[in-house]
């Protein structure tokens, strides 16, 4: 599914990933853990660049359009599945069937009340869930999510993560919350200074093992 071999990557001119070897198989749920600046985001981007087809992405900065409604931001996940004309009409007059599909996804994320509210007027946590909703609406084989629950409270985080893991067969998450990583993923990759320093099934690890990374 994903195969990276001795990959390097730079971010803003600074080399942030060194010699990365990574293989992910279909159906795996992967968590990238490590300090901020350890290269998690760059790795997510690198994977997205290599495997853009059929992949949904939840970027760290959400990638939302503030002046568009929640509905349109979520619908944006599927622009490639409709004609340009259909998209433009939907922009002005939302199609009823699309609205229903989006509403269903939003209700799973406790966002259905905000369907037609401009994203710019939502709180940070709400925005983050809209970004997740967009990826769920998009569907695909692979989900790449960079800190998708960083602004959401503990209890909601669990709901959101569950939705994401159910929605995609293969998932790569960058997570700074070790507890969540251990609870929801089946494989943990530890990063430090741009190198993979840990690669192990979650079952074999405890929180203590991971704390050394921080």
């Amino acid at each position: 599914m994903i195969q990276l071999q001795s990959e390097n990557a730079s971010y803003q001119g600074v080399k942030t990933l060194h010699d990365i070897d990574l293989k992910v198989s279909e159906g795996e749920k992967l968590a990238l853990v490590g300090q901020s600046g350890s290269g998690k985001s760059t790795l997510i981007k690198l994977i997205y660049e290599r495997y853009p087809v059929n992949t949904a992405l939840v970027p760290q900065d959400y990638g939302l359009v503030n002046h568009l409604s929640v509905f349109h931001n979520v619908y944006m996940g599927c622009l490639d599945q409709h004609s340009t004309f259909y998209n433009l009409v939907n922009l002005i007059r939302p199609k009823a069937d699309q609205v229903e599909m989006v509403r269903a996804i939003l209700s799973g994320l406790q966002l259905e009340d905000y369907l037609f509210r401009p994203v710019g007027r939502l709180s940070g946590g709400q925005k983050q869930r809209v970004a997740v909703a967009r990826s769920l609406f998009q569907k695909g084989h692979l989900l790449l999510a960079d800190e998708p629950v960083s602004s959401v409270d503990e209890q909601q985080s669990r709901v959101v993560l569950k939705q994401m893991l159910n929605g995609f067969s293969t998932v790569v998450l960058a997570l700074h919350d070790i507890q969540l990583a251990l609870a929801f993923c089946d494989r943990i990759i530890g990063l430090e200074k741009g190198r993979i320093v840990l690669d192990s099934p979650a079952k074999r690890l405890t929180e203590q093992d991971l704390l050394s990374l921080y």
């Binding site: 970027p59 503030n66 619908y75 944006m76 996940g77 490639d80 340009t84 998209n87 922009l91």
Partner: peptide, 28 residues
């Protein structure tokens, strides 16, 4: 702000992408 572009599928038409991901925030 170009951040919305990164999450949009590259197969989407240029026009659709522009009208959804760029124009609304630049309209003002």
């Amino acid at each position: 702000d170009k951040s919305a572009l990164q999450a949009i599928s590259r197969n989407a038409s240029t026009i659709s992408t522009f009208f959804y991901a760029r124009l609304p925030d630049l309209w003002e």
